[in-house]
Design a protein around this nucleic acid. Structure first.
Lengths: 160, 160
DNA sequence: TCACTAACGTTCGTTGCCCTAACGAATATA
DNA sequence: TATATTCGTTAGGGCAACGAACGTTAGTGA
């Protein structure tokens, strides 16, 4: 039986112990699962991670230049361009030249953007629940603590 | 100061709380750090994750067809083609038609492949140590347990 | 005032990983 | 024998992460 179209692969039997053992792989697997789910859910409303990151940043800090958005989200400036384009195309944000510094654009969230962000927030909260379903409160706290410390150890927050 | 070429971005200040809070993001960040390190280190010897996965599988199960490799590693068959090409080009594996079933190729690890695998093993062990540096034994066990259960909950092992 | 430097937005391109579709050749099954 | 399935392969799309280069604008120091 060939793999039916649309079916993910993944070890049928058991994968080599050497693969299983690597911590990096454990992390990679978890992240793979997680981001698959996130992308699926966000994709259903035509969004992706970058959109959420940018909108959440705009919501929290107010209008900002693209460089500021890049610094705050960790998204590369070149990628901010594209993502902002998409937000603008969707009517979720506006891009205007900064009169005070004509090198810059000022990105502002629109009302539709606000609603969109709320929607994405709900979606991600659901995903979060789904991801953490098997864990009780104590374990969730443990996991957050460990991952938080891990990230700190690895030199702060990475891109996106 | 523009970002010097070659410098990663990443929030200079603090990123929005909303971003920090998402478990998915926590995971994503961790995985991002981890895979960056893995890729860097493997890249130094011209390797990548797929190479290790395939070689480790060949080592553990012996010669196999590409379909078997795909099943065991979770790498898509189309990607197995490319990765095996690279291993063959590097002299780490051989691809021969299977006389018993002429649809198949038999992939065999060479002696150089064995040495290469040992090298990758060492590299990844080092990376593992580096990643887990901030944690004591108890915490490492916790993390492995939690991530393991997480992955199980998410439906077994994902594609590599 | 005139360089020079730095920041900003943008375009273009690359790589890795994930994933799908389709095809010819070979084999298995009905 | 007719049909279905498997295998390797090619081609391609999508997203995230990343770098190089460029024109434009602003600040800084001589």
């Amino acid at each position: 039986m060939d793999r039916p179209a649309g079916t993910r692969p993944g070890p049928r039997g058991h994968s080599p112990a050497r693969l299983r053992a690597q911590f990096g792989r454990l992390l990679g697997m978890a992240a793979s699962h997680s981001s698959r789910l996130v992308n699926e859910r966000l994709g259903e409303v035509g969004a992706r991670k970058y959109h959420f990151a940018l909108l959440a940043t705009l919501d929290e800090y107010g209008p900002a230049s693209q460089a500021e958005l890049s610094d705050r989200t960790g998204i590369y400036r070149s990628d901010v361009v594209a993502a902002v384009n998409e937000l603008v195309d969707g009517g979720y944000a506006e891009r205007r030249p900064d009169p005070a510094d004509r090198r810059r654009n000022v990105i502002t969230m629109t009302e539709a953007g606000n609603e969109h962000l709320a929607r994405l927030d709900r979606i991600l909260a659901g995903v979060n629940e789904e991801l953490l379903a098997p864990f009780d409160e104590r374990e969730r706290a443990q996991l957050s603590d460990l991952l938080g410390r891990f990230n700190e150890h690895m030199g702060g927050e990475p891109p996106l």
